[in-house]
């Protein structure tokens, strides 16, 4: 009798070939780049590494990155909650169009995301002359960096919360209202506990992008050392000066942030997957 092959699984040869190719692809494109960052950063030992990341200009870039995220993330958090309340808890015409508009910044090239603010607030921009007359600097200064960061991270919280809140419906909130809760009580005691993990998930992704954004910020920054350089921009400058250890040292901090984000994201999906909405289970 011929060897019977289980008809709904592949032969071991096929299975191990697929597994091998898949793992090789992941190793080549995902594991190696991260290993390379830390390897290059530590090429001249830990001493050189710590010198590079404690350099005053690097520290000011780290500080600006944190300031930027500290403004952009809460701004988009408030927007995300407000937008998803309006979109998910009410029915109105043009809803899907509004959702498309909210998602729009994700389809725009990062460079164009920065360019639009230069064209609006720059010296040759629409309101540029007025800003100059009033001595307000937005582009090539911190406000421009914050605005460009808000633009590129705009949809993160909203797109996480809208499907989640739509799925949860309005019954619990209606019950709270009929029992006499006011609007804020309804939100903080009923809605927020239901969406907190989804909210955290959105904030996590929003923050990772806000701290790591390069293209949009590079266009509006002007790249003034110690003043308008975020960490990713500082990496670029060091790299272009062939200061590889320092460039990869700062890059390793950003890579660590990415890895921490992935671990936290994985934990949220694993522990609270069912509370993150249909898309995440």
């Amino acid at each position: 009798m011929r060897l019977r092959i289980n008809p709904i699984t592949e032969t071991p040869a096929v299975k191990f070939t697929l597994l091998g190719i898949g793992l090789l692809y992941i190793a080549l494109f995902l594991v190696l780049p991260v290993v390379a960052v830390f390897n290059e950063a530590l090429r001249k030992g830990f001493g050189a590494y710590f010198v590079a990341i404690s350099d005053p200009i690097a520290l000011s870039a780290i500080k600006l990155t944190f300031i930027t995220a500290a403004i952009a993330v809460p701004a988009n958090l408030i927007f995300g909650v407000a937008a998803s309340w309006a979109v998910a808890k009410f029915d109105f015409r043009g809803k899907s169009f509004l959702i498309t508009l909210i998602d729009l910044p994700f389809s725009v090239s990062p460079v164009v995301s920065g360019l639009v603010y230069v064209l609006l607030f720059g010296a040759q921009g629409l309101v540029g002359p007025w800003l100059q007359a009033h001595d307000i600097q937005i582009v090539f200064a911190v406000p421009g960096i914050v605005l460009a960061t808000i633009f590129v991270t705009f949809p993160f919280v909203a797109r996480e919360l809208i499907p989640l809140m739509q799925e949860q419906g309005t019954e619990e909130e209606e019950a709270a209202r009929s029992l006499g809760a006011d609007g804020w009580q309804t939100f903080f005691r009923v809605t927020l506990p239901n969406i907190k993990w989804g909210l955290l998930y959105g904030v996590l992704l929003c923050n990772a992008r806000a701290m790591g954004e390069f293209g949009a910020v590079s266009v509006v920054s002007g790249k003034i050392r110690g003043l308008t350089n975020t960490m990713p921009l500082h990496v670029e400058i060091l790299y272009n000066e062939y200061n590889m250890v320092a460039a990869f040292a700062v890059a390793s901090l950003l890579a660590s942030l990415a890895l921490v984000t992935l671990v936290a994201k994985g934990l949220l999906e694993w522990r609270y997957g069912h509370e993150l909405g249909v898309a995440r289970t």
Binding site: L30, P33, V34, A36, V37, E40, P110, L205, A208, M211, G212, E213, F214, G215, M231, P232, L233, V235, E236, Y239, A247, F248, A251, L254, A255, L257, A258, L259, T261, L262, K265
Partner: peptide
């Protein structure tokens, strides 16, 4: 990872 890793870091790596 490509979603989370800043693009400049990916670029130099």
């Amino acid at each position: 990872l490509p979603f989370a890793l800043p693009t400049a870091v990916a670029g130099i790596a």
